[in-house]
Design a protein around this nucleic acid. Structure first.
Length: 271
DNA sequence: ATGTCCACCTGCTGGC
DNA sequence: TGCCAGCAGGTGGACA
């Protein structure tokens, strides 16, 4: 899924279709994804005009003129299909606009979610309540991260995946950023020199910006809303490249599974 | 509080 | 060819 760059790419793809559009119809093909859909979702969205599209961490935000925001999460396998010619299995929610455009939220694994909250109460949405700063934003800087990692014994990789510390990073871009910064994923968060933390912050911002620029990474089941494939995956330095040569030093990229997730790194250039 | 593991669900791939 | 184990981008709850 979609990590932050893919969600940003998705939102940018949805914007020209939805912004300013009236929702003529919203229909669901089942009652839930990871959570039940709000019972009044169709009623509250039907007839509303979409005023803005946005993103918070890995969540997409669809704001309406009724003061509601529909919040979607793509989980591991979610994507929006734009003007699909046929309905597919796992098209769980369909939006039709007054202009005759059609969007289908497709999510085979159903780890995604759709919620509806008052726009002026977005900060109270439970997933947002404890969330840390946006990694691309000015609040995420070396001083902030140094403070967040201070005294922590857990591997820096686990801490960067903790959305309370920084909101929007996932497995791919954490592996990539740690490689760029030359920091071993297993290193305790509290044992990284301040100067290297600055480099880590830069690496995170850089890799996310590059991925957004590339239109989001293309994984097996990820397609941009407009149907084009992203191509950032071709630029991965370590993720998914176990056994291949590190592009920096020529050493072998390592892979280790822990807690059900794979970590990729170069043992030679990451310490 | 902190750190670790597992469940949730479907689809695909690679090895036998 | 068929079967089955292993693996996949996230989140949140249950432990110690």
């Amino acid at each position: 899924m979609p990590e932050l760059p893919e969600v940003e790419t998705t939102v940018r793809g949805l914007r020209p279709v939805l912004e300013g559009a009236r929702i003529a119809r919203l229909t669901t093909r089942r009652a839930d994804l990871r959570r039940p859909f709000p019972g009044d979702l169709a009623q509250r969205m039907t007839g509303a005009v979409v005023t803005q599209l946005g993103r918070r961490a890995k969540y997409g935000l669809i704001g309406t003129d009724r003061g509601d925001t529909m919040i979607f999460h793509l989980g591991m396998s979610g994507r929006w299909r734009v003007d699909p010619s046929v309905e597919l299995p796992h098209d769980h929610l369909i939006v039709e606009t007054g202009a005759g455009r059609r969007l289908a939220l497709n999510d085979p694994r159903r780890f995604g979610s759709v919620d509806l909250v008052a726009t002026d109460r977005l900060a109270d949405y439970p997933p947002f309540a404890q969330m840390g700063p946006e990694p691309m934003g000015p609040a995420f800087d070396a001083a902030y991260l140094a403070r967040a990692l201070e005294g922590r014994q857990a591997p820096v990789k686990a801490l960067l995946l903790d959305q309370r510390i920084v909101a929007g990073l996932g497995n791919i871009y954490v592996c990539e950023a740690l490689h760029i910064a030359g920091i071993a994923p297993s290193r305790a968060g509290g044992r990284i020199a301040t100067s290297r933390i600055a480099g880590l912050v830069d690496a995170i911002k850089q890799v996310l910006a590059a991925a957004i620029e590339a239109g989001g990474s293309s994984l097996r089941d990820y397609v941009r809303p407009d149907g084009e494939l992203g191509y950032f995956s071709k630029q991965w330095r370590v993720y998914g490249r176990a056994g291949a040569a590190c592009g920096v030093c020529g050493g072998q990229v390592q892979r280790r599974a822990e807690g059900g997730r794979s970590t990729f790194w170069c043992a030679n250039c990451q310490r």
